[in-house]
Design a protein around this nucleic acid. Sequence first.
DNA 1: CTTTAATATGTTCACGTTAACATTGCGCAA
DNA 2: TTGCGCAATGTTAACGTGAACATATTAAAG
Lengths: 341, 341
Amino acid sequence: MKKQITIRDVAEKTGYSFQTVSRVLNGNASLHKAATVRKIEKAAEELGYVQNLFAKAMQSGKTWSVGMIIDPFIDSFTKEIFRGAHDELTARGYLPILLLHSKDAHDEELVKRLASRRVEGLIIRPYPDMDGINRIAAEVQRQQIPVVSVDYTLAGSKNIDFVGTADEQGGQLAAEHLLELGHQKFAGIFAPVESLSLRREGFEKVLARQAIRPPKILNDWNFSDEAANLVAVKELLQGNEVPTALFLGGDFMLPTVYRIAHELNLSIPEDLSVIGFGDMSVAHQLVPCATTLRQDACQLGIQAAQLVVERIENTKRTIPSRQLRFEPQLIRRDSTAAPSK
Amino acid sequence: MKKQITIRDVAEKTGYSFQTVSRVLNGNASLHKAATVRKIEKAAEELGYVQNLFAKAMQSGKTWSVGMIIDPFIDSFTKEIFRGAHDELTARGYLPILLLHSKDAHDEELVKRLASRRVEGLIIRPYPDMDGINRIAAEVQRQQIPVVSVDYTLAGSKNIDFVGTADEQGGQLAAEHLLELGHQKFAGIFAPVESLSLRREGFEKVLARQAIRPPKILNDWNFSDEAANLVAVKELLQGNEVPTALFLGGDFMLPTVYRIAHELNLSIPEDLSVIGFGDMSVAHQLVPCATTLRQDACQLGIQAAQLVVERIENTKRTIPSRQLRFEPQLIRRDSTAAPSK
DNA sequence: CTTTAATATGTTCACGTTAACATTGCGCAA
DNA sequence: TTGCGCAATGTTAACGTGAACATATTAAAG
């Protein structure tokens, strides 16, 4: 084990007491004479002194670290969230501690690791398929550590800050866009998960006010059985009432829809306008490029980071739980147009 | 600041001294009576005691953290490297500290952060365009902290472990594959960077022994000027000696080559066999899917982690610097075939 | 030249942990 | 019984730092 350079070494070299050195290097240097400061800083530089964050953390109780349970590798969206939060935390002096689910490390293990590192806050982007995350969040919060969830809400836990998309407004924007283009026969595809339901509600709400007929709704997109989706979508686009405008609760549905449209000889956007949600990479890879609603994922990450930090640094006042939802932006591309007749 | 639960709290609750608790919970429990151990563990559980790694680190000098300067977001290859190293470090009890280059945080800053967190080792995947990385590595190594570079070698620094691809052998494999198919007229495209040069050497070495003619070589692929590449590749594939087999130093050249081949009316693989290197995602997205040489990136990460940990835990013996190169694997796809005549 | 106030520096303690050593208590042999 | 040795537990010091307080030095005012 190689010897560390401590403030005592610097003190000895300069002849000052170690406390003076402490104040100059890591505390309030303005309490000392300029000459003293200069001498001490020079000596520290020469000796290669770097403050020991572990010692500092132990003495002050402040660890300057924040846990992040986000898998930045699932898609580019979570990547951006991670990136935003990471950069914001870093800029504010905090160390983001990324916790990925390895095979071995499971829930219990993760909480222990967070706790033993005395993480001051936790940012979570919950995975829909993972319910252990709720227990983790609850457990961490029980220890008075601020928790913020991003993108997806956390089930169960009260009083957890949330940063995400204004899904309902997104749905409204989609409806308004299609109405503006002059459509009258609408359809929508969703799934029974929270965010998609909100998008559906926004969509339906606007149409209820302004459209002649209510939209045909397919509400049970199947995440595991693609064949079922093919059948259901086909049915939606055939039948007695053929829609001219289709709103998808998520861009991931685009390929299926494009495929069925092609099979049915419906050309996009001439026969069918399609608008997605999320601006995933498929949206601009398909032909024609898909109109969609984009969320600035990076911004979500930044906001999440700001919320945790705010809570971390405001131990006194109790801050009420906040739910921040940012309105997505309409990206007009080539999959939506006025109806042909 | 909320109160921490310490071994002293557990000691008070059980009536034992804090030292006994320390031994039971974080030390050698076998030194104590089974009944004692049981009582203490129960009390710790009830109080929600979790050891404070900061205190432990300060006392023992062991921080259980390893820095990683890898941008896992450039491509799937670095992602896999990161993932492998991350999981291996985690499995061995170390905390990977990911250091990304934010705009603000630059070299000096990074080193400081590594040092103040008392990182015990450093894994670097150097970026070709970033030379600050060499200074960082040198500086960190000067502080006796083991450094391992992955995928790309670090310029300048002596005695740094390296884990990467056996580029030369990869080049040999490519040549052997093409020879086996019966080709006689070869070409190769490379760039003047270390790894590509090694691939070229392996390629040329085998051909020098077994081929009738030496290959036509284009050695200055231009990373910034695509137009220049188009011209150069076109020239390579026309001229007096038209090759029937082409080895690319990197898969990233594939799209350009496919395009030029199409322009020149050369069909792949009938008129021209093309073999790439790296098995990047383009390789199997193109039509026809490209034969290439694949490296198991995850494995590189794991190995890198093992090397750092080994050095961290072997402070006594000096380990000579190691250069581990893993042989890539030939992935036969549809872009290579026997020459048509 | 004092006294006073401000400025500059030094001392002690605490943070939570482990290591090294010290003590206690017990069983067993002399 | 006495002493010995071992097992179980307790005591003290140390890791590097900052806070709180104590002291020394300087400057200003009388």
